[in-house]
């Protein structure tokens, strides 16, 4: 890295300030929302983790169709650990993430013999098999109806402090803390040499291999880390909603993750987060207000096609392009004349 001078310090300060503002806004947010919107905000926070963990996997160039099922593995594992074995919920969520990571580690042996399209189909098949197992084996997975009455996050009672996590606002803050910490870890991984190596595998796996990168190990690492955080998201979901079933983790749900990631753009860390936030806002505010619930998949489908066709780098690149456009206009009229100001 070039020596960080005064410019670097200023930039870092600006970055931190922005982060402070962001968290202030996130802390104020639930108080501006209705009860049902608060519930949506909780799910949104969980989905941010889901799509960000998915992005980590895509860094190595592989696109999975099983990520939502992996989230389900975390959800089922955490729910079962709490229900059947009485494991305390915060711990069960962590173990759920571990279970998802373990499933990914096992699956990586067959899956990473494949690449590209074959990996996509292989991950799809693996996910469907897991879902069918949940469906088929009523004990312990509850069959098609899934698991119900999953233990909620325990209330905190400490003297004058009493937090009931049944309240969406409180669960929102809990999820926000867990997800922020997870995102921090994901960000650190990407900015470290591990992230560099993931990118290297994506762009030239043979060249990476030639200087000693064990591409299988690193693909597995990306898959396991991504799955761990998807599992954590699953645990957060299970103990909030209180019920899970195989349909909740079907490929339809995976399509939404794909849409968020593609529409937001996977080139940057914040792209997919932008995608899930923007589409959730569109979904919940615009479509719900217009009473267009039935056409939601159609609109999602159209957005997906249009962004693949016209925004290959996602919404994030739209911002960059708009900025360039704006600059062009500002400095432009004198030079070009014909441009509308």
């Amino acid at each position: 890295m070039p020596a960080a001078g005064a410019g670097g310090a200023v930039r870092r300060l600006a970055w931190r300030l922005r982060l402070v503002f962001l968290f202030a806004a996130l802390a104020a947010l639930p108080y501006l929302l209705s009860y049902s919107q608060q519930e949506i905000a909780v799910l949104l926070v969980i989905n941010v983790l889901l799509v960000s963990s998915y992005r980590l996997l895509t860094l190595t160039g592989e696109w999975s169709l099983g990520h939502v099922v992996i989230m389900g593995v975390g959800a089922y594992a955490s729910a079962l650990l709490a229900k059947q074995l009485g494991v305390p919920v915060p711990l069960s969520t962590l173990l759920g993430g571990g279970a998802a990571a373990a499933v990914a580690a096992i699956l990586s042996f067959p899956l990473f013999r494949m690449k590209g399209f074959y990996f996509l189909i292989g991950s799809f098949a693996a996910g469907e098999i897991i879902r069918l197992i949940w469906k088929r084996f009523t004990d312990p997975f509850g069959g098609p109806k899934g698991l119900k009455r999953i233990d909620p996050f325990p209330d905190i009672e400490a003297g004058f402090l009493s937090i009931d996590f049944y309240e969406p606002v409180n669960y929102y803050f809990l999820a926000l803390v867990v997800v922020s910490a997870s995102l921090f870890v994901l960000y650190r991984i990407e900015r470290s040499r591990i992230g560099l190596t993931f990118h290297a595998i994506h762009w030239q796996d043979r060249l990476a291999e030639s200087v000693g990168v064990d591409t299988f190990r690193y693909r597995t690492l990306a898959f396991v880390i991504a799955s761990f955080f998807a599992g954590i998201a699953g645990g957060l979901y299970a103990h909030y909603v209180g019920a899970v079933n195989p349909t909740r983790f079907s490929v339809d749900q995976m399509v939404y993750v794909l849409v968020w990631a593609v529409v937001g753009g996977t080139a940057t860390f914040h792209g997919p987060i932008l995608g899930v936030v923007a589409l959730t806002v569109v979904n919940e505010i615009v479509l719900r207000a217009l009473g267009l619930d039935t056409v939601r998949p159609l609109i999602y489908g159209a957005i997906l096609i249009l962004s693949v066709l016209y925004l290959p780098n996602g919404l994030e690149s739209l911002g960059t392009r708009l900025r360039a456009r704006l600059q062009h206009w500002r400095g432009g009229p004198a030079a070009t004349g014909s441009e509308p100001a």
């Binding site: 039935t294 998949p297 999602y300 693949v308």
Partner: peptide, 22 residues
Amino acid sequence: NPLGGLIASIGFLLILQTLAVL
């Protein structure tokens, strides 16, 4: 862009499904 084509076809799938529901 084969991956793009695949993702676009997923979008198309959602459109056809919704039209059938409508």
